[in-house]
């Protein structure tokens, strides 16, 4: 009897362990000042999200500069200590178009030391890094060398964001020498005035889906929980209106609703710091909950269960309030 008792206990423990072994979700944090509000803290708490991918700074090699420079390094606050932070550095592709091979090592060092400086200010350490770069066939060699040198210098886990076109055309764009990639399952369409959603469109996703299974890299997936609006003038996009509350156009007499996802400026006016000319159109692009569930279905169907982690872009209450509170749980439950 004693023997059975022990095996029963063991089963219970294993079951408990299994239940606890819920695959984690994470978020990107993409602002220049790290400061979470109550809503954002709650989202993290309720979804047991410990890991944050935090944008530390951009790197750009501007036409008027003689060397690459960091753009808007983040200001952290003490609450950063509560999280497992993975710094993300966005490197504008033109940096690698202009960078000479002889200056590569210097750039690696500068990026490395800037991360240390940012961390030191808050007296904490990070042990992993992610590079975000929309590299091309032309820049792949120098970008991959950059990653390689960074790995050797820092001895850290290094990941990179992977765009869908880079998955489909891997023979041309190459596979970066990283520990894992984060598949950006969004921003797949052209940003234009047509009726498609540039953030996610199933028909566009289908052009890429079949290539995910065979991508030779361990993968996480990044899912969009952001929205934006496009300002269209004569049918062409002239400005991206980031993080605006689309419903507020409804109560503004300067605007008229012309379709489900569009308003038109009846009169020229200012709103939220943007200027609208008469007849400018505002097209909303956002990802409703059903699309997010559809994305997880797509990932389930096409990734062969190889996605280890879901990361949401981005942690910002302006975005998150547009969803029911249990959206992340639903997505998680829907994800195989």
């Amino acid at each position: 009897m004693k023997k059975y008792w022990w095996s029963f206990l063991l089963s219970l423990m294993l079951l408990a362990a299994c239940r606890q072994h819920k695959r984690p979700i994470s978020f990107y944090y993409w602002k220049t000042q790290f400061s979470l509000n109550e809503y954002e803290r709650n989202v993290l708490r309720e979804n047991e999200a410990q890991t944050l991918y935090v944008r530390y700074f951009d790197v750009d090699f501007k036409p008027e500069d003689n060397e690459p420079v960091p753009v808007s390094p983040i200001q952290l606050d003490t609450s950063i200590h509560n999280f497992n932070v993975i710094p993300v550095v966005f490197i504008k592709n033109r940096t690698f178009e202009r960078l000479k091979a002889t200056d590569l090592t210097a750039l690696v060092r500068k990026v490395f030391y800037l991360i240390i400086q940012i961390n030191q200010k808050q007296r904490f350490q990070t042990h992993e890094i992610q590079f975000d770069c929309d590299w091309t066939e032309r820049t792949r060699d120098i970008f991959f060398q950059f990653i390689q040198q960074y790995r050797e210098m820092a001895g850290e886990t290094v990941s990179a964001t992977i765009r869908l076109h880079q998955v489909k055309y891997k023979e041309r764009t190459g596979v970066p020498p990283v520990d894992y990639g984060v598949l950006m399952y969004y921003n797949m369409g052209a940003i234009n005035g047509d009726n498609n959603n540039s953030i996610y469109e199933r028909s566009v996703a289908n052009r890429y889906n079949s290539y995910i299974k065979s991508y030779p890299l361990k993968l996480h997936a990044a899912l969009p929980v952001f929205s934006w609006a496009l300002k269209l003038r004569n049918g062409k996009v002239v400005e991206l209106l980031n993080k605006i509350n689309f419903t507020q156009f409804e109560n503004d007499s300067n605007f008229i609703r012309i379709s489900n996802d569009r308003y038109q400026a009846k009169h020229a006016c200012f709103k939220w710091g943007f200027y609208f000319k008469e007849k400018d159109e505002i097209k909303q692009e956002h990802i409703p909950a059903e699309d997010l569930l559809d994305i997880t279905n797509q990932i389930n169907e096409h990734s062969n269960g190889r996605i280890d982690k879901l990361i949401f872009y981005d942690l910002d209450s302006t975005n998150l309030i547009q969803y029911e509170k249990d959206i992340f749980e639903k997505i998680h439950n829907n994800w195989n």
Binding site: Y28, W30, T32, R55, D58, P63, E64, V71, S72, F90, K92, D132, D134, T161, M184, Y186, N187, A190, I191, S198, I199, A222, W228, V237, L240, N242, Y313, D314
Partner: peptide, 21 residues
């Protein structure tokens, strides 16, 4: 400047607004 200057949309596509020359 910082707010407009950072890669707000960079985990995706962007609009090229400027080039050299």
């Amino acid at each position: 400047y910082i707010i407009t200057g950072i890669s707000s949309f960079t985990l995706g596509t962007g609009i090229i607004l400027a080039c050299g020359g």
